[in-house]
Design a protein around this nucleic acid. Structure first.
Lengths: 159, 159
DNA sequence: TAAATCTACGTAGTTAACTACATATATACA
DNA sequence: TGTATATATGTAGTTAACTACGTAGATTTA
C-alpha cells in the first residue's frame, strides 16, 4: 500500500478526480468503438436539451451544475458540430434559447443503445458493497447540509 | 430533480469531478483559516516525501498515482516555496533524489493538527450508508480487474 | 420615470491534471 | 565492446473545468 492510500481521507479530492479522468477516457474510447463522434463532456448539455428544449444559457448551466462560462464553451463546440442551435427569446432580448438541431436529435437516437451499454457497465462497476453512485449522492447531500469547511471551522484555534 | 441526476450513471465522471472540486476548494479555505500557506494539491507530494524521503521523480509520481510531468510541475512550485530540495543520485546520474527541506519538515509538524481536523471532517462527511472512501476503493479495484471500456466492449455491434 | 439594481450572456485568464515528444544516462545483448 | 533498448527526467502543448470581470437589457424603487 502506498502512503497516499494510507492517508485516506486527506487525498480524497485527488482520488475522486483520478477516477473521474479514468471513466471519462474510457467513455471516449467507447463512443469511438461504436463509431460515434461524440465526447463524454458533451453529454450533460445534449441530454438536458433533449429532455428540456428551449432553456437559456444560464438555466442550462444550473441544470447541469456547471458555471455558465463552462457551459458557453461547450455550447460553442456543439454549435460547430451542428448538434445544437439557439434563437433569441422574443420576450427577453438578453436571452438565447437553446435547442438540439435535427442532426442532434438523430445523434441522440443513435447513441441511445450506447448509453444503455455504458449505463449497464457503470452500474456493474459501481455496484459494490458501498455503491459509488449512492455514496456520491449521500456525500453531496451531507455537504449541502454542512460543508467540509463548516465542519472544520469549530476547531479553529481561538485568536 | 434535474435531468442529469436522473441520468444517473452516465454523468458519473462529471459528478466525481465536481465533488473533487468542492472538496479541494474547501480544503484551500481550511488551510487559510488556520493561517497556513499550503495548497491541497501539494499534499500528496509533501506527505509522501515526509514518509519516504529520497524518492526519485518517477518513483514519487508512481507513489502518488500521477503522471510524471504533473509531479514535476508540483515539484517546481514546492522548490520555489523552499519546501523541498533535490540532489543527484551518486549511483545514477539521471536521477534526482527528493527530500523535504527543514522548512518543509517544520510545516508538516504545523499542519499535523489541521490534517487531523480535516480527516475527521471528511470521515464524518463520507461515513453515510454507502461510504464514499470505501466505494472509491472498491470501484478502483473493480476497474483494475476489468475496465469500463472492457465491460462495454462485448456489446459492440459486429462489423 | 429616472436611477439603481439585478439578470443573462460573454470574454479573458487560471488551474490541475493530462499526453506526446525529446534527451541523456544506464543496462542488456550480439 | 559497441549497439540497441530501457529508464529518468524534462518541455511543450492540451483539456475540462473554474473565477473575475464587463456589458446590455429587464426590473424595481424612490
Amino acid at each position: 500500500m502506498n502512503v497516499i492510500d494510507a492517508s485516506g481521507a486527506l487525498a480524497i479530492s485527488t482520488r475522486l478526480q483520478r477516477l473521474a479522468d479514468l471513466l471519462r477516457k474510457d467513455g471516449q474510447m467507447i463512443y469511438k468503438a461504436f463509431g460515434i463522434d461524440f465526447e463524454p463532456k458533451w453529454f450533460p448539455v445534449i441530454y438536458t436539451l433533449f429532455h428540456k428544449p428551449g432553456l437559456g444559457v444560464v438555466e442550462l448551466a444550473n441544470e447541469i451544475g456547471y458555471a455558465h462560462p463552462s457551459t458557453i464553451s461547450l455550447l460553442k463546440e456543439l454549435e460547430n458540430e451542428k448538434l445544437i442551435r439557439s434563437k433569441k427569446d422574443r420576450h427577453d432580448e438578453r436571452k438565447r434559447l437553446l435547442f438540439l438541431t435535427s442532426k442532434g436529435e438523430e445523434l441522440v437516437q443513435e447513441m441511445r443503445p450506447v448509453w444503455t451499454v455504458m449505463s449497464d457497465a457503470i452500474l456493474e462497476l459501481t455496484n459494490t458493497t458501498n455503491n459509488l453512485l449512492k455514496a456520491i449522492a449521500e456525500t453531496e447531500a451531507g455537504f449541502r447540509g454542512k460543508s467540509f469547511f463548516e465542519r472544520a471551522k469549530p476547531h479553529l484555534p481561538r485568536k
